[in-house]
Design a protein around this nucleic acid. Structure first.
Lengths: 338, 338
DNA sequence: GCAAATTAGGTTATCGATAACCTTATCGGT
DNA sequence: ACCGATAAGGTTATCGATAACCTAATTTGC
């Protein structure tokens, strides 16, 4: 039985020896800097290949003070919305040799601060962070202490960092209010959860109510701080709202998931949609357009936001100019629920 | 106008000076190792705090040969399935001070190899990688050359690394076949895409067909290599399949999204489900249970797989024993489409 | 044909932190 | 009082790669 290969690590030095050059030369060849003849360059590459050399980026970054990853801080990687943004970001970063480091805040400012701290300790080349969160003071200080570009996404209302890419959630709320008003609904409701944490959702709520109230109407709200922002919360809150205000003829939900959850319950409860009650959501997730029921919603170009953010980051790193404010507006999608 | 603060970087040395100790002492205090008196410990902590010291993990990792991140390689972070797995992993890693580095292969072996290379260069403390991909030979070599634990997820059929957490997709395919047979369907179809890339989906397909054929029946397949694995492909392929085999009375789809897409089309086309045609998907995504139509599917505990993977990784890092094979079976969910 | 410019490659000093090892005090026990 | 054990903290040598600078050999221009 063999002793197993001596896991003798391969460093620049080992490659250099095999190619008969200095380690600096290898470093230059592998990064394509400096001037090295075609011949030795080939020899070095071959040596590296034969030894299966894998560079140690930690050492490299420490020395060059240029790291190869970008921190991306979002509320949750499991939420379709942010998952798609994340994917869009990563798609644009990887071709530039940048790795994506993720952090999930769960909409919690304290957790965000903690994440920021550990991320900054990794000396990221840049940071992409989701707005719309109750940031701690120390969190803000950490953000300023950063090196490299800072892109804030999702929330266009709250500016911070070099570039801001997102939408005005307040305007989005107003947009949906306008739709309800144009349709002539007059007993209007709103259903949401966790607005104390998710500032963007809160802004949508405020914009919605604001617009409705401008017409003299009022909005019946059912807001529960502790329920999840998911389908399951839809039925619960809808039922509560309808008990308090049975005359309600239209409800705007925090997101599509809750709207769809509510629709399911409304169907079972025999409430016709939109005959008796209109329903609208937010996000434009694929689940909003399923089968017979297509939820009226505002479709946010999620992947597009991510791509724009990744692009902005690499552009800045390359010294290009980037528009500091990029509005990416949601698109109104008329379904058959309103 | 002030010149702006000299962004004088704070290193261990600066903290040490302010606290009147050596930098080694600061290092020990901040990591809680070595023996330092309560008094100096306090003094050091305060100094670090006042200066807003943020450690440089790159230097730390280089020196200690222990990095603080884990590479997670999945097909796509934007796909609900893997997004939830990713989130589960991250949830378990962060409390241990481990950061999650993501890589998206898009089911492409060559891309996977490239990602592996850059990930390994960051000296990750461990690796969690999705199975069911056509791995390149060099990719396999890279995986062996790694340091630290390697957890493979999603695909229990193909073992590799220290721990394997996932399901047998072949079994899953057979399970759904059994359901169709029990219901007495006899003209059975299968619809899928990209099976050449997604080995797991291919396994489900094989298991499904295998089980059906055991009864002497055959399966009409509509498989298109180049269409996306999304809702939009459902209608296209369903229409094609029904043209070729109008008598088909049940179809198993590659995933829920395609099944739901198909349902929408079937409804418009006036095909009653499950009266004339039964439909089943795979994954148990929330979109499968919307409103009036609840797709029959196999629900995979996605977050659970992620959590188990994260847990296994940290367990191994702490020297604990971990079961090398953890089967996480999907749960059959009877909807009203079959 | 010779000085200047360019090419090809090597030397040396960090980057910021930690492992491993050392040096003093301080404290009991006998 | 003396010796070994423990506590508290400091010294030194890396970790693996790169920036910055330097040297020698060619090439180029006129």
């Amino acid at each position: 039985m063999s002793k197993g290969k001596p896991p003798q690590k391969v460093r620049l030095t080992e490659v250099a020896q095999r190619a008969g050059v200095s380690s600096m030369t290898v470093s230059k060849v592998l990064r394509g800097t400096g001037s090295i003849s075609e011949k030795t360059s080939e020899r070095v590459k071959q040596a590296a290949d034969e030894l299966g050399y894998v560079p140690n980026s930690l050492a490299g970054s420490l020395s060059s003070k240029k790291s190869t990853f970008v921190g991306v801080i979002i509320p949750s990687a499991g939420d379709v919305i942010f998952a798609e943004i994340l994917s869009g970001i990563n798609e644009r970063l990887r071709p530039h040799g940048l790795n994506t480091l993720i952090g999930e805040t769960l909409f919690d400012g304290v957790l965000e601060e903690e994440i920021l701290r550990t991320m900054l300790s990794l000396q990221p080349a840049g940071l992409i962070i989701n707005g719309g969160i109750n940031r701690t003071e120390r969190g803000k200080v950490l953000l300023e202490r950063r090196n490299g570009p800072l892109i804030q996404i999702w929330d266009a209302d709250d500016s911070c960092g070099d570039v801001n890419i997102g939408l005005s959630h307040r305007q989005a709320g107003r947009r949906m209010a306008r739709h309800f008003l144009e349709r002539g609904y007059s007993s209007i409701g709103y259903v949401g959860t966790e607005l104390q944490k998710d500032i963007c959702a809160h802004q949508r709520f405020l914009g919605f109510v604001e617009r409705i109230e401008e017409t003299g109407l009022s909005v019946t709200c059912e807001i529960e701080a502790d329920l999840p922002r998911q389908a399951s919360s839809g039925p619960v809150l809808t039922e509560r709202l309808l008990q308090r205000a049975p005359e309600t003829d239209a409800i705007f939900y925090l997101n599509d998931a809750m709207a769809v959850g509510a629709l399911s319950w409304l169907h079972d409860a025999g409430v016709s949609v939109p005959g008796k009650l209109a329903v609208a959501g937010f996000n434009g997730t694929s689940l909003a357009h399923t089968i017979r029921t297509r939820v009226t919603t505002l479709d946010v170009p999620r992947r597009g936001i991510g791509e724009a953010a990744g692009q902005a980051l690499t552009d800045i790193l390359q010294g290009h100019d980037v528009a500091p404010h990029q509005r990416i507006d949601p698109v109104f999608v008329a379904g058959n629920t309103s």
